[in-house]
């Protein structure tokens, strides 16, 4: 375990072995939870994506990598576009390799007589309830208590655009610096999906476009550069 802790924060490449099962004596083995980017190969933990190794107490390790392609994972909230209505289900495009299904009963207050008002082309924020490599992904717009909890159809007006998955994870952090900086500018609405899709809406089209461009470009900027751009913008616009 000590060798793994030492490598936290370093760049790891696919094929790197983190622990050797044979090195540790029987009694001293701790549990190690493999997050994304790590896999178990008999007794060793092997890296399968390139990126930075991260650690969370007590024993969770994962690889932070930059990626554009979304692979559906259970429990994530994603923005989907409704592409077809077939019978009792909606086919939703979430950016993965397959279309996901969303049953019409998976909305708050929906019954067989009271169908939700969802049309083809609508944007839907929903949660993945089944997402593994062997099955078609399934979405729901209610949580386990039966309440919508912010999920459902949205998006009258506004702009939907795609960013990398790393940026989306940064935005969804509890104390995201990017959101705090943007807050100070002008009011806007934002929906962030874990599949790399962001929807923004502001008072006017120009402001919406400014926010969209800012978010797309702050992926490659450091904190100082971002604050600089925001300062210049606020001086020019407001």
């Amino acid at each position: 375990m000590s060798s793994t802790k030492e490598r936290v924060g370093c760049v790891v490449l696919p094929g790197d072995v983190l622990t050797c099962g044979s090195e540790l004596p029987e009694g001293k083995r701790d549990k190690l939870i493999c997050g994304p980017g790590l896999r178990r190969d008999v007794d060793d933990v092997v890296v399968c994506k390139s990126g930075i190794l991260r650690h969370k107490e007590p024993n969770l390790y994962w690889v932070d990598s930059q990626q554009t392609r979304y692979v559906p994972a259970k429990g994530e909230g994603v923005i989907g576009i409704v592409t077809a209505k077939s019978g009792d289900v909606f086919k939703v495009d979430i950016g993965g390799s397959e279309l996901a299904t969303l049953s019409y009963l998976a909305f708050e207050g929906a019954t067989k007589r009271n169908r939700p008002n969802v049309q083809v082309g609508d944007l839907v924020y929903s949660q993945l309830i089944i997402a593994n490599k062997d099955m078609e992904p399934e979405l729901v717009c209610i949580d386990s208590c039966g309440r919508a909890n912010g999920m459902g159809v949205f998006g009258a007006g506004g702009l939907l655009f795609k960013v990398s998955l790393g940026l989306v994870r940064k935005l969804l952090l509890p104390q995201s610096e990017v959101i705090q900086d943007l807050d100070s500018m002008f009011p806007f609405e934002m929906v962030v999906g874990m599949n790399g899709r962001i929807w923004v809406k502001s008072r006017s089209t120009q402001q919406t476009l400014i926010v969209a461009n800012l978010l797309e470009s702050c992926e490659h900027m450091t904190t100082a550069q971002r604050r600089d751009v925001l300062r210049r913008l606020s001086q020019n616009c407001l």
């Binding site: 490449l13 696919p14 094929g15 990126g51 990626q67």
Partner: peptide, 11 residues
């Protein structure tokens, strides 16, 4: 393949 974040067994 590394840039796309695909899972690899080795380089």
């Amino acid at each position: 393949a590394m840039d796309a974040g695909l899972n690899m067994r080795c380089l």
